[in-house]
Design a protein around this nucleic acid. Structure first.
Length: 425
RNA sequence: GUGGGUGUGGCCCAGUGGUUAGGGCGCCAGGUUGUGGCCCUGGAGAUCGGGGGUUCAAGUCCCCUCACCCACCCCA
């Protein structure tokens, strides 16, 4: 192990994985475009207040997972732990409220959380997400979920399950939290230590505690769905009806509470059928109060975020279990002798101009070594150019993984020769 | 943040306290003049994660530390 290594919880994407990342990034451009969403990029760093106000100072993300620091001018800054806060800040700052609404945005990039690394959990993580501003109707919730589902399906991830819930308005949520706390209080002594702590900090989390899952008090706990007012109830029912109209399968899970303070009404998560530890692939929800919290006019909004690293895990497990098909090299040049290297460089250049993928051979190596190297690149053809070939203005075109016989071809027009050879395949 | 597991060439792994730490894969080269895959031979490449300690002797035992993995927690 070298004495320098990547910071804890941060990792390199090596060439063998880069194609998979590229595949995901391409899907993350195509799918939102089909829904008429537009890209927005915000700084990796914001004033710390932006995040504290958005995710909540008492949430884990706001209280202990923020990478925060004072810059040289004395400003308190933080690396962004999630995407929505920065987008909303930009929305307010640039007066985007005066653009035609609804306004549809998407983003993709790295985020940072100081958390203990684990499988599927990193300190630098990448997320793709969308935000839809100015549409209060349940159709917006359904559209955003449909976009998220389309994104997964675009990549062949068609086996994720969607779980939805409604957490109502901040007022209903406050009433529910009060009742839930009262419900659990008599059981403090039999609850786990984690849940005792959560009783004071985040009661909702007790509901999906792994340790207390079988506890009677958890099983008999009141459900937030029973606290919804008429408008919230109608909104949730309509969201469900739209999902059914779209043919999107879902289950209602009253335990979904999400970890960020800004959510209102609809919340959801996508998960693999066989859920493991860090299994949530992506989640989202409505956040009708956030724009106002960050200094804008009251504006309804809904969005989701999904973790690229977790998509990578799922794609490797199921969709690309046998690996991504590698794009073969069309031609590897094999320069030999004194005149070969210059002629090979020139021939390679000509071939690339007609769109072929060409790897240059390394001068000075034996023909055997160069052919071995070309073979390992899965090259279709080797183009052998030595002093003899240069003298006669030719090259030897040797099929490696292509069919056909070795040919003597004109050095000044190898492209045509290769096209003819391929046409005979 | 809590508990547990694992760290030996680029990768996967052997290695009862006792010579110069091995193997497979990969990489480089050679197996006669300029022809790949299979095979054979050779080579390069390791402060045994790092630091300290015990011992005549430590990859092996002890302590500390770092990183990764698993569960909790949290969440993407």
């Amino acid at each position: 192990m070298a004495d320098v290594q990547a910071p804890r919880g941060m990792h390199d994407v090596l060439p063998e994985d880069a194609a998979l990342w590229q595949f995901i990034r391409e899907a993350a451009r195509r799918v939102p475009a089909r829904f008429d969403y537009h890209e927005i990029a915000t700084p990796l760093v914001e004033n710390e207040r932006v995040f504290l106000r958005a995710v909540g100072e008492d949430s884990d993300i706001g209280s202990k997972e923020l990478y925060a620091f004072d810059d040289r001018g004395g400003d308190r800054l933080a690396l962004r732990p999630e995407g929505t806060a920065g987008v909303v800040r930009a929305y307010v700052e640039h007066g985007m409220a005066s653009r035609p609404h609804p306004l549809r945005l998407w983003y993709l990039g790295p985020f940072f959380r100081y958390d203990r690394p684990q499988a599927g959990r990193y300190r630098q993580l990448n997320q793709f997400g969308v935000e839809l501003f100015g549409d209060p109707t349940p159709a917006a919730d359904a559209e955003v979920m449909d976009l998220q589902r389309s994104f997964y399906e675009e990549m062949g991830l068609d086996d994720l399950t969607l779980r939805i819930n409604s957490i109502g308005t901040p007022e209903t949520r406050a009433r529910y939290i009060e009742d839930l706390t009262a419900h659990f209080r008599p059981h403090v002594d039999t609850l786990s230590a984690d849940s005792r702590r959560r009783l004071e900090t985040n009661v909702l989390r007790i509901l999906d505690s792994k340790e207390d899952a079988e506890h009677d008090a958890v099983r008999n706990a009141p459900e937030i769905l029973d606290y919804l007012d008429d408008d919230d109830r109608a909104h949730f029912d309509a969201v469900r009806a739209y999902l059914e109209a779209l043919g999107i399968a879902y289950t209602v899970d009253p335990r979904i509470v999400r970890g960020l303070d800004y959510y209102t009404r609809t919340v959801w998560e996508f998960e693999p059928a066989e859920a493991g530890g860090q299994s949530t692939v992506g989640g989202g929800g409505r956040y009708d109060g956030l724009v106002e919290m960050l200094g804008g006019q009251p504006t309804p909004a809904v969005g989701f975020g999904t973790g690229i690293e977790r998509i990578v895990i799922n794609l490797k497990e199921r969709v690309f279990a046998d690996g991504l098909p590698a794009e073969p090299v069309d031609v590897v040049t094999i320069p030999l002798g004194e005149q070969g290297p210059a002629a090979a460089l020139k021939a390679a250049s000509q071939l690339r101009e007609v769109g072929l993928k060409v790897r240059n051979g390394t001068p000075g190596r034996s023909m055997k070594a160069q052919l071995r190297n070309a073979n390992r690149a899965n090259a279709l053809y080797a183009l052998i150019i030595g002093d003899g070939e240069v003298a006669s203005g030719t090259a030897q075109l040797k099929p490696l993984n292509a069919r056909g016989d070795q040919l003597t071809v004109p050095l000044d027009d190898v492209a045509t020769a290769i096209h003819e050879a391929q046409a005979r395949q």
